[in-house]
């Protein structure tokens, strides 16, 4: 089947079309989402207001004063038909420094105990993978990450915390994630990053994009403090590289 045949175009009100790929969560499906999002953005079709990628679908918001449903549907089908030829740049990997354990990661010992491993093992496993950012949502800049090793999976807290500090890194089931802003939450907190994933006053308010990857790296308290000071001034830049393969 070609990519065009597996995509379904669905009416989503009079100002959006939902382009849905296969109905499952998988890196190869999300790669189609990313390719389509980038190919469509590159077309600069007048009237498209916003393109919102998610796990397995892309919501294309548009203004009917500039383009009507039938014309946009045709244009989207055209982009899908030529998706194989579209040149999509490799994804960016963001290195996110994390101070694991202690006050910043109060649940690290629970996760270690639950998985029957040492805290050092949990840190090593958690910081060795490159996690795919399937999409952003829930709160500003919250990345839905995929690809965590099941060996360090842990259940959610029985009673959610009322306030989790911004930058907290947690585990819930087989998912891992970062809280970009202080919010309530029930994830097991294993560490914290001084990097501001979200800053409304920054030119690019949210660092990471859907389709990017996140690689955590362990830092000590001194390094954490140094990065936090730089992040506060707005001068800290995460190390990034191109995802291979």
């Amino acid at each position: 089947m070609t990519k065009m045949e597996i995509a379904k175009l669905k009416v989503s009100g009079d100002s959006a079309i939902l382009v849905e790929f296969e109905n499952r969560i998988a890196p190869e499906i999300n790669r189609l989402v990313r390719s389509f999002t980038m190919a469509l953005a590159g077309k600069n079709i007048p009237g498209i207001v916003e393109i919102v990628p998610s796990y397995r679908a892309v919501t294309v918001h548009y203004d009917p004063s500039f383009i009507l449903f039938d014309a946009l549907r045709k244009a989207l089908k055209d982009v899908l038909a030529h998706l194989d030829e579209a040149e999509i740049p490799p994804a960016t990997v963001w290195e996110i420094p994390v101070l694991y354990g202690g006050e910043e990661g109060p649940d690290l010992s629970f996760v270690a105990h639950h998985s029957g491993r040492s805290e050092e093992d949990v840190i090593r496993i958690h910081s060795s993978a490159e996690y795919l950012v399937y999409m952003l949502g829930f709160t500003p800049g919250f990345p839905y990450l995929g690809g965590m090793d099941a060996a360090i999976a842990a259940p959610r807290l029985k009673a959610p915390r009322l306030k989790i500090p911004a930058g907290s890194v947690g585990i819930a089931g087989q998912q891992t994630g970062i809280y970009p802003i202080a919010s309530p939450g029930g994830w097991q907190l294993i560490g914290r990053t001084p990097v501001k994933l979200y800053d409304p006053m920054r030119a690019e308010p949210v660092l990471v994009q859907a389709g990017d990857y996140i690689k955590f790296t362990a830092v000590d308290a001194a390094e954490y403090a140094r990065i936090a000071a730089e992040a506060e001034k707005g001068s800290y830049r995460c190390r990034t590289w191109r995802k291979e393969g």
């Binding site: 939902l18 969560i25 919102v52 998610s54 919501t59 918001h61 839905y144």
Partner: peptide, 10 residues
């Protein structure tokens, strides 16, 4: 459903 976009008036 698998989380996806929500439009005004959905």
């Amino acid at each position: 459903i698998i989380t996806d976009g929500i439009c005004m008036g959905a």
